[in-house]
Amino acid sequence: MKAVISVIGKDSVGIIAKVSTECAACGVNICDISQTILNGYFTMIMIADISDINIPFTDFVDRMATLGTANSLQIQAMHEDIFNSMHHI
């Protein structure tokens, strides 16, 4: 089971480290990272394995959002099924 973590905002030193540290604390394993510019904003997309997550996924969503707020970023974790539903038949 996977999740997509999107990080949107101004690029700065240590973003990946901060998100990775939080993921590790929650038992979330990062599988893939890509970066791009979406509507002028730095956008990082992480695909993460949440099979061994040690807290409820909705709590992880909250922790990511809080981490984002603390760093002037928008960090959102979303279950992969929304993307699979929309783009795969």
Binding site: V4, S6, T36, L38, N39, M86, H87
Partner: peptide, 17 residues
């Protein structure tokens, strides 16, 4: 495997549209 452009399209739909 999820494609980055598909992910960005979905996020864009929710955030911008």
């Amino acid at each position: 495997m999820l494609a980055t452009e598909d992910i960005l399209e979905t996020i864009g739909m929710i955030r911008e549209e």
